[in-house]
Each structure stands twice: as structure tokens, then as C-alpha cells.
Design a protein around this nucleic acid. Structure first.
Lengths: 144, 144
DNA sequence: CGATCTCGCAACAAGTTTTGTTACATGTCT
DNA sequence: AGACATGTAACAAAACTTGTTGCGAGATCG
């Protein structure tokens, strides 16, 4: 499996949490994501620590939203996952003292930082409620 | 080893090729990159196919630039490496039929495409000769 | 012409990272 | 008490990239 789909998966879960009637157990979520409950708990731990979801033990327990989707941005979720790497292309560090290598990495880093700034600033403006609304629109279009 | 440093490494090599007097063997390049000759040949094969470098066998053989650095852009090298993945964050495909998942992936894809366009358009404007010039500037600064 | 050098390529080994799994402890509800 | 459900640590498995070995072919030198 190449690439990190945790961000996408967590958004998926959060929107389902809002729509579903009650708490979802890790096992239900695991089935939804084609994975297993422990992986779900592991991944969602960061969201719990930051107060976006909460988890309850025992009968009727499971995961619930701890704040409405319009109070959570894509950036929030990204950070709750501990800011995973955005880019696959990384600088080489074969001969850190080589000035050619330094010049190359400076050039690459400059464009990387630009792209990172663009991505994160976009993330900050996107609320999960907007994505949920997009979903509603799709459903309405299908119903017609 | 996480991440792909081939782009950085190939830029490094190309600039050294221009500066070095004659051809560089895969073994010399391998020592420079802290890797071995086969990996060098494997990685540089794409550059040869596109005519940015050429390789000669036998005594005095090795790799040489096939065109000047101001005729090669960062995008050219990126494409010669078969356009490796730029982003680590990928869409999930757990339940391709789930409209929530589709809405999530659409949202992520939109920002991803923006960032990709930014990166590749920057790549297209950066000539390797510019990076080599940056290097010269660094050297001059040190010499003072 | 033979020796040496060098690349080309395929097949395999090793290493790394992520994900999946098992096991057990803790807390909660009926 | 018993059934649920999460929390966490330790371990196993899978996937992917890089590294390595081996052999073949072409080029140069003496």
C-alpha cells in the first residue's frame, strides 16, 4: 500500500459519525474502512486527544463527534494525525558538505515550501461541514 | 528510508557532469551518492532515453551530458524519472461506492491538483543552469 | 587478439516502513 | 457477574524501495 490514506479515511469517519444516529464502535468503523478495530483506535487516538471525537467504553459505547463539523477544518484533522509528510520527494543527504548538493536542495526546498503553504492554507479554509454538504448535493442529484 | 530522493540526486549528478572534465563512471557517481553502480545505471536510464545524458562503454567510457544545463529543466528530469508521486497523502478506496467517501476524495483531490499544478509549473521554469549558478555564487561567497 | 574496462539487464537479497493481529488490562452498562 | 468496548503494547505480515550479485555485450588499449 503506497501512500497515506489516513486523512481521507478520518474525514470519511467523521462525516459518518455526524450522520449516524448513535456511537459507532471501532469494529463498525473497521468494517467501513476495510481494516480492523485496533488500527481504527490507533488512528483516531489523535482526534480524541484534540477533542474532535470522544470514545466511551462499555455497552452502547463507541465513538461520537465531540463538536459539530463546521467547527473542524481539514487542517485540524491533518494536525491531529501528527502532520504526516505531504511530499514524497525529499532532499538527498549523501554528501551534506557538497555545495552542489546544497544548491540543489535549496532549489527544491523553495518550491516545496511554496506548495506546502498552498496546501495547508487550503486545508485551513475547508470545514468538514462543507464536505458533508457536497455529499448532500450528490445525494439530492441522484434522487432526482 | 522514507521518501524519494532520486530527483535531488539526479540534479546533483547532472551538475557535476557539466563541471567535471570528462565522463564519470557509474562507480564514481555511486561513490558520490553513497550507493552502488547498478542503482546509478537504473536511475539514469530514464535520463539517457530522453537524451539528457549519454553513456559510453569501454575504456574512458561513462556518463556525459548530452545537452547543456540551460536546455534542461527540473520538469524534464522529473519526467525522465517517470513522474514519481509527488504527494504522500492519497485518497482512500475502501468503499468506492460510498458517496461520503467520494465527496471526501473530491475535496482532497481538488487541493491536491492545485498544489500539483503549482509544483510542476515551477519545475518547468527552473533550468539546471540556474541551480549551477547558485552554486557558483555560494563558492564565490566562501572564497571571500 | 586478448585483457580490461564499462554499461545493460535480470534476478534475487536485504532493509524499512506501514499495516494488521494478538493478547491482556481497564472501564462501563445491564 | 457477565457482556461490551476501548487502550495499549508487543509482535507478525505485507509491500515497496534499495542494494547486490551474476552474466552478457560492446569498446578501448597494448
Amino acid at each position: 500500500m503506497r501512500g497515506d490514506s489516513r486523512l481521507s479515511r478520518m474525514l470519511h469517519v467523521l462525516i459518518h459519525l455526524e450522520r449516524g444516529g448513535g456511537p459507532m464502535t471501532s469494529e463498525m468503523i473497521g468494517r467501513m474502512l476495510n481494516t480492523n478495530p485496533v488500527v481504527v483506535r490507533r488512528t483516531m487516538a489523535g482526534l480524541r486527544e484534540r477533542g474532535y471525537v470522544q470514545s466511551e467504553k462499555g455497552h452502547g459505547g463507541g465513538w461520537t463527534l465531540a463538536r459539530p463539523l463546521d467547527k473542524i477544518t481539514l487542517l485540524d484533522v491533518y494536525e491531529a494525525l501528527d502532520r504526516p509528510e505531504l511530499f514524497c520527494l525529499v532532499p538527498s543527504s549523501d554528501h551534506a558538505e557538497c555545495l552542489v548538493e546544497i544548491a540543489v536542495n535549496d532549489a527544491l526546498d523553495k518550491t516545496r515550501r511554496e506548495a506546502e503553504e498552498l496546501l495547508l492554507s487550503r486545508f485551513a479554509t475547508i470545514r468538514l461541514s462543507q464536505i458533508a454538504d457536497d455529499f448532500e448535493t450528490k445525494v439530492a442529484a441522484l434522487a432526482r
